[in-house]
């Protein structure tokens, strides 16, 4: 009897100690969490500060940009935007139209040609598959600079310089292997039984691609579309080489013109136009964040 009573007492005591330990752990975990949040919030501010500075400077009167650290402008100077839009020999309406044309065509090209190639690599059997796949992966490693000169000579001889063809046509030829890789990864996950069942029903591989694979791959297509949209939008080197005439300039080339006219008076306008050039990217990022994050986690690039 007596031992039983001690047992119970010991058990109670143990339970109490366990409870306290758990409470302590919880409290400690909570404190750690709060510290973490404080640190991460601080870091977020540091990470975003440059972007806010750019935004603030684009709204400040010229003499305030470099004289004060305060982000809030003393007065909102929207003139930077209206004047900046027309500050260059051509208006930004032209540059945005140009960028839009190049971007839209390039995205279509990437999606079509890369999904074709990816479908073959992921779902079809053919001679030379491993070799071609290895070659495709190797092109991922090749810097654009290495193929630049011969490509330039080629396009020059075709009379394509100063047109959008050198920027757009390669995208219809699956030149960006990253997207092939991304889509191969995705296509491989789709259940093979679908193809097999369709095959037995007499579906051709072309039809399987169009009716089964493509509709099931909308998330992958979305990811590829957003990445290719953002990269083409920001692309600088290829337009720099192929576009000489200012009326065919894309937005990044136009922004660079501001640097050539260095002089304090245009900083505000340059910042304003820089902000505008980032807006499409940021909007797409916010709208399609999930697709972007998943795309990186599964294929892992850039």
């Amino acid at each position: 009897m007596k031992t039983n009573a001690t047992d119970t007492a010991v058990r109670d005591k143990n339970a109490q100690i366990a409870h306290e330990i758990r409470l302590g752990q919880k409290r400690r975990a909570r404190r750690a969490r709060i510290y973490k949040h404080i640190f991460l919030i601080g870091m977020s501010i540091v990470m975003l500060y440059p972007l806010f500075w750019l935004l603030a400077s684009s709204l400040k009167p010229e003499n305030e940009i470099f004289s004060t650290l305060t982000l809030w402008p003393s007065e909102f100077n929207w003139d930077n935007y209206t004047e900046g839009w027309n500050a260059l020999p051509k208006s930004f309406t032209v540059f945005y139209m140009n960028s839009a044309i190049v971007t839209v065509l390039s995205v279509i090209g990437n999606l079509l040609s890369c999904s074709f190639a990816a479908y073959a690599f992921a779902r079809l059997q053919f001679n030379g598959k491993n070799l071609f796949f290895a070659l495709m992966m190797m092109t991922l490693m090749i810097p654009y600079h290495v193929v630049l000169i011969p490509q330039y000579v080629l396009f020059l001889n075709l009379g394509w310089v100063d047109t959008y063809l050198p920027l757009v046509v390669p995208r219809f030829l699956a030149s960006d292997a990253f997207f092939i890789f991304l889509m191969v990864q995705f296509f491989r996950q789709l259940p093979r039984e679908l193809d097999e069942a369709a095959m037995i029903d007499g579906c051709s591989p072309y039809k399987i691609y169009w009716v089964i694979i493509l509709p099931l791959s909308l998330p992958a297509m979305g990811t590829a579309a957003i990445f290719s949209l953002i990269w083409v939008w920001e692309d600088f080197l290829a337009p720099l080489i192929y576009l000489n005439d200012i009326k065919s300039y894309t937005v990044p080339l136009a922004l660079r013109l501001f640097l050539d006219q260095e002089g304090q008076s245009i900083f505000g306008q340059m910042f304003a136009m820089s902000v505008l050039s980032l807006v499409p990217v940021i909007v797409f990022f916010i709208a399609f964040q999930k697709l972007i994050v998943r795309g990186i986690a599964t294929s892992g690039m850039k």
Partner: peptide, 28 residues
């Protein structure tokens, strides 16, 4: 018969690979 569909799907990539990657690398 075995390869035709795959090669059809790979045609853009083939052209791109030879004209824009392998060719230029050798040319350079």
């Amino acid at each position: 018969k075995r390869n035709a569909p795959a090669y059809v799907f790979l045609t853009p990539w083939f052209i791109g690979f030879f004209l824009l990657a392998l060719g230029p690398i050798l040319a350079s």
